[in-house]
Design a protein around this nucleic acid. Structure first.
Lengths: 144, 144
DNA sequence: GGCATTGGTTAGCTAAGCTAATTATTCCGC
DNA sequence: GCGGAATAATTAGCTTAGCTAACCAATGCC
């Protein structure tokens, strides 16, 4: 029976491994031809559905004026669209276009495929442990 | 005996969990009063020792001119220092100052502590699985 | 109906990214 | 050991991404 690991130490490992992992997959994004901040904002719309600009800004940890210009750029590239919110005409509803959706999905698939190419080095048992650890982490990060 | 999970699916979960995790801890960096790109470059020096500008740029996936100015800023803030490399006088050696080191370590500690505050919600058995999964992931990401 | 609140944009700044061009070494071939 | 190619860094000048302050438009509430 292995001894229970120290929480701070696990957090430390987790932190640096996450950094390394994203640094690794980030290289794949250069192919997409879309700037990181825009890609990230687009991803929020694609996975969360139409959102107001404020929500989008909050999700991206950015101020509204910053997001306003990112959305300008996404619109100019035909990847997102502002639509009027009939419930509250102050707010806009921002949604990804078809093209924005597929572009994001392709980029994401590239990242995931690339990451998977590292995971195939693991034994089935290791992969299973990784999947279980991941599930535990997701529970931990859950709000509440 | 649980069945062996699908590699692509694990990669997918891993990817999105890593994104979520870093987005979560990033909030802690606002306290440090140092911009993200600088903090990240500083971290490379602190953990890897003195490096040339090119190495630093490569590590950060950035072009040399960009890194040159980040180092300018770090020097101006008294967090890093360029020293001459007597072996190759074209190149500079960039190192964190004492103050740069402690500033980074404090920031890192804040992030880790914050992350740890989520992990305490886990049962000892879950934490152990997480630690094992993490070890597997580190093996997978290892170059080679 | 008037006024505070809320959502978004505009203006104007700094920081962070890029390419192209310049300068200073180093390396290499002869 | 000299001259040219290659390499390390910086400078110049551009775009994108971040910010605050100021503004306009719609909502909401007494």
């Amino acid at each position: 029976m292995p001894k229970t690991p120290n929480v701070e130490e696990v957090a430390d490992q987790l932190h640096s491994t996450a950094i390394r992992l994203l640094r690794l997959v980030r290289v794949q994004d250069t192919t997409s031809g879309i700037a990181p901040a825009r890609l990230s904002a687009l991803s929020v719309m694609v996975f969360g559905g139409p959102v107001s600009l404020r929500e989008l800004a909050r999700a991206e940890q950015v101020r509204p004026p910053t997001m306003s210009r990112i959305v300008d750029a996404l619109e100019a590239q035909g990847l997102a669209r502002r639509t009027i919110n009939t419930k509250d005409r102050r707010a806009v509803l921002i949604a990804a276009t078809k093209r924005g959706q597929s572009l994001l999905q392709e980029g994401r698939a590239r990242r995931v495929k690339f990451l998977a190419s590292y995971l195939v080095k693991l034994e089935p048992a290791e992969l299973r442990i990784l999947a279980e650890g991941l599930a535990a982490m997701q529970r931990a990060l859950q709000p509440g």
